[in-house]
Design a protein around this nucleic acid. Structure first.
Lengths: 155, 155
DNA sequence: TTCAATTAAATTGTGCACAATTTACCTGTG
DNA sequence: CACAGGTAAATTGTGCACAATTTAATTGAA
């Protein structure tokens, strides 16, 4: 049975299933913050950049999370309507929208700090193993994204 | 810098990004078959079970792909409207819907056979490495799903 | 200066995911 | 038989992803 088409032989299915399973593990933890998983990722970037004193544009979030404005614009509007962030057109370049944390949004970080630890407990997998896996995934991601620039489907 | 909240320290983000990157690699290949990625997964299960002479219910697809009827019902309706599958209520248990391949759906397998090979080329990553990764992902998936049954967020 | 080309974000439209509810049907017990 | 309890799929509603187009602003030549 060396069937390349068998579901169990698709790496991508393992990735797809594992991703959804882990996201499902996050869900109850993030529900306490009233955030979805993509919203949580956006907040992580914003907290990080705020600490570094960097302003954040929609396109910065897009570059970091590999998401386009079609995904981000409505997501950011929802975060804004909840009072966690503000969205402002730049004065010197009206095309650009700058995203800033409100005080409430900045304060949410304290609660979020417990999420990674809780998730690790909830997974109950040796952290070293998760770390190794993360490196492997990142390295694969780099390969894929490198090829993307060269437009390339090989053969 | 041991900040657990840093985006780069979230395993889940690597998983999320890698999953989307690989799915994006599939997209042009599957577009030739006029299938989305989840539709492709459903077809894989159907081809596999048809070969084994097994009938397939909506819930079988759900169990295999970890998807519920909320996702599957509309997806299956789209496949049916394209003539790739048929959906029929069971005679002896009217709650159950059996999914069968049409001739057209069965024939599509021939074209799909080239997809895994093309994807491997397009990724240009040593297959052994992908295989190792798949095993690791599956093993993590098993741990998560085992805990799920016991309801369990640890501590 | 003028206007074609670019750029940033928003909009539109399709298709997942998934929670929650609903509908229809089956099964077992009294 | 009646009917409570459970099961299978469908429906409803929200929120991503992402392709494709649009809007508005900026830049850079000729």
């Amino acid at each position: 049975m060396d069937d390349l088409l068998a579901l169990d032989n698709q790496i991508c299915f393992s990735l797809y299933a594992a991703n959804r399973a882990i996201t499902a593990r996050y869900r109850p933890l993030l529900a306490e913050l009233d955030l979805t998983y993509p919203q949580y990722l956006v907040m992580l970037v914003l907290w990080e950049r705020a600490r570094a004193g960097q302003a954040t544009r929609v396109s910065d979030l897009g570059a970091r999370l590999r998401l386009d404005s079609g995904t981000l614009t409505p997501l950011l509007k929802r975060l804004a309507s909840r009072g966690l962030i503000s969205r402002e057109r730049n004065a010197d370049d009206e095309r650009v929208v700058t995203i800033s944390l409100t005080e409430q949004g900045a304060n949410l970080r304290a609660q979020a700090e417990q999420v990674p630890q809780k998730l690790l407990c909830s997974l109950d997998i040796p952290p070293a193993r998760l770390l190794a896996m993360k490196h492997e995934l990142n390295s694969i991601l780099r390969v894929i994204e490198a090829r993307e620039e060269k437009g390339g489907s090989s053969a």
